[in-house]
Amino acid sequence: MMSWLTSFQCLASAPTETVGTEGGFLVLQVIGVLLGVMGLLFFLGAAVGLLRFPDFYTRMHAAGKGDTLSTMLMLAGFGLVTMEDLSLGSWLLLIKIMAVVLFVYLTSPTSSHALMRAAFEDDELPLTEDDLRNSKRGKRRKKR
């Protein structure tokens, strides 16, 4: 808490002067680590969905959403963790990292959409309820 307060005092008084806070601010680092762990969790969801889901469209649903959000969370976490002081350079670094995030947010849904459209026009059929009923697992469930 104290380091947070001193950081704002530093911002108010002299932005070029680096006041001695050893190795970055603790609060920012904790928030950054939390964001990074949340990003890993979302990427875990995307990976498991990509591994387990039955047809292409559901897999793309998992991969598109989980990938975009986990990229944003992880990059924001690293931007906060690497922020060592409140000088102009570290602000520029944070803005640059957020520019990567903005770019991924623009491009990842676009490429997902293009891929989905290519698959749909290429007669890749989505899984229906009948397919599930006729599959091996569905028959096994019926026997029970």
Binding site: F43, R59, M60, A63, D67, S108, L115, A118, A119, D122
Partner: peptide, 13 residues
């Protein structure tokens, strides 16, 4: 398409 999707995910990561 699955392969391209996987390549896309790995590229972003």
């Amino acid at each position: 398409f699955d392969r391209i999707l996987g390549v896309n995910v790995i590229g972003t990561k």
